[in-house]
Amino acid sequence: MKGVSFLATVTILALASYIASAYDPSPLQDFCVAINDIKSCVFVNGKFCKDPAMVSANDFFFYELNIPGNTGNKVGSNVTLVNVDKLVGLNTLGISLAHLDFAPYGLNPPHTHPRSTELLVVIKGTLLVGFGDVFVFPVGLIHFQFNIGKTNALAFACLSSQNLGVITTANAVFGSVPPINPDVLINAFQLDKGVVEYLQKVFAPK
């Protein structure tokens, strides 16, 4: 009986450790500027740390947030993401930012961030996301933004991860590689076979 109890305790601790590791860890130093240098001896959050003596103010600046994104695409929206890959000073800080531009009736399709909660602030225009000027999407929740106005819209999103990840629902379901069996999609979404085949063709990776 003691062996079973011990095994259960170890399993629970292992699970708790796995769950905890799904989030950005708290930094143990003031900063760890990311650098793609395999000779570095410190590897944190998937990035190597730049030698602190070589860090400069430019490692903490991003200059493109004032530039409107190109919304001339099929969904009529553009996301300028500022994550650790764009701003190396974010490494280990557990935060990122996104600038979202919408043409009239532009859509940021349903998607999810597997590693981040998102706090969206509408700066200009009217977006269908919920209610009010500020809206929060808990980590992993499928969400979208849709410009229901006749003018351009602008929003900023603060995200609780340096590398939030994004999974666009339609692409993941209908454009997966290898493709999901059409019979599964027909039954899961209660769609005709022709509709499923069309959607798989539309969302197939280019």
Rank of each mutant, 00 (worst) to 15 (best):
G94D: 03
E64H: 15
I67H: 13
A57Q: 12
P104V: 05
L120D: 01
A57D: 14
F102Y: 15
F48M: 06
H99I: 10
G46W: 07
G125N: 09
K74H: 12
F43C: 09
D59A: 10
G94R: 00
F48H: 14
L81P: 05
V121M: 09
N108W: 02
N91K: 07
S96T: 06
L127S: 04
N78F: 15
V42A: 14
A98T: 08
T80Q: 09
S77T: 05
G132V: 10
V82S: 00
L107V: 14
V129E: 04
R115F: 08
L119F: 07
A98Y: 04
P68A: 03
G132A: 05
Y63I: 03
V139R: 15
L90I: 01
N70K: 13
T71Y: 00
L65Q: 01
D133C: 09
H113K: 07
I123Y: 10
S77Y: 02
L119V: 15
L120R: 00
A53H: 06
K86Y: 05
F135L: 03
P104A: 01
N108E: 13
D101T: 11
S77L: 02
P104Y: 04
T117N: 04
F131V: 11
A103G: 08
H99D: 12
G76K: 01
P138V: 07
A103E: 09
F131C: 10
C41V: 15
N108R: 08
N58G: 11
V79H: 04
T112E: 03
V134Q: 12
L97G: 09
L90V: 04
K86G: 10
V82I: 05
L128N: 14
K50R: 15
P109M: 10
N83C: 05
V42I: 14
L97F: 14
K47C: 13
F135A: 10
P114D: 12
N108M: 11
S116M: 11
V136I: 15
T80C: 02
S96R: 02
P114R: 10
S96E: 05
D101K: 07
G72W: 02
C49P: 12
A53D: 15
L90K: 02
S77K: 01
F102S: 03
F102N: 00
